Each structure stands twice: as structure tokens, then as C-alpha cells.
Amino acid sequence: MVITIFTLHSQNSVLEQKLEKKQLLEKEMAKLELMERDLYDEIANLNNLEYISEIARRDYFLSKPGEIIFKVTPTSSD
């Protein structure tokens, strides 16, 4: 009888540990799925020519033919 109770108690604690680990892994999986969706969105954006041209114009100051780019520094409102 004592052996049975001891076995049930040890199995119960192992089960609780595995359930906790499962919950942590499910949270991690949800984060990774969100990251995956963000990466797929980024891939879609990088295949969009308008998005690429916007990035090139903003970050590298490239321009279209006949276009002039002015860099404006923000002013502080004192």
C-alpha cells in the first residue's frame, strides 16, 4: 500500500513538471509562430518594388530620374 501511494505521488509530480514544461513550450511556439508570420510579411514586402524603392529613397537617399532629395533636419520646439 505504501509503495502504491509513493508511486502515485512520484508520478503525479512528474506529470506536473511535464505539464509546466508543455505550457512553456506552447508559449515559445506561439512566439515563434508570430515571428514566422512577421518574416513572411517581410518576404512579401521585399518582393514589392514600391516597398524596395521607398526603403532605397529613405535609407540610401536614392532618387527617381528628375527628382531632387532634400534632407530636412527636425527642429526642436523651444
Rank of each mutant, 00 (worst) to 15 (best):
L15I: 09
K22V: 15
L19M: 02
L32P: 09
Q17W: 05
I43A: 03
L19C: 01
K31R: 14
I43M: 03
L34H: 12
A30Y: 05
L39Y: 05
H9A: 09
T75I: 08
L62G: 05
Q17D: 06
I52K: 01
L39V: 08
I55Y: 03
N47M: 02
N48V: 00
L25G: 06
N48F: 00
N47V: 02
I55A: 02
L39K: 14
Q17F: 04
E16H: 11
E36N: 13
H9S: 11
E50H: 06
M1P: 07
S53C: 10
A30I: 04
N45C: 06
I52F: 01
N48E: 00
I5M: 09
S13V: 11
L19E: 00
A30P: 04
I69F: 04
K64F: 08
T4Y: 09
Y51R: 01
I55D: 02
R37E: 10
D59G: 08
L8T: 08
T7Q: 10
R58S: 03
I55P: 00
N45E: 09
N48H: 00
R58Q: 09
I43S: 02
P74G: 05
I55M: 08
V2K: 15
L25M: 10
A44L: 02
L32E: 12
L49G: 06
M1N: 13
D41R: 15
E16T: 06
P65H: 05
L49H: 12
E42I: 10
I5E: 07
K71H: 12
P65T: 09
V2R: 12
Y40W: 07
D38C: 06
I52E: 01
D78V: 12
T75H: 03
I43L: 08
F70M: 08
Y60V: 03
G66T: 00
H9P: 14
S76G: 14
R57T: 15
I3P: 07
K27F: 05
T75K: 12
L32M: 14
L39Q: 12
E36G: 12
L46G: 04
F70G: 10
E42M: 15
N45D: 07
A44W: 01
E50W: 13
A30V: 09
N12Y: 13
S77T: 12
K64C: 02
L24P: 04
I3H: 10
G66W: 02
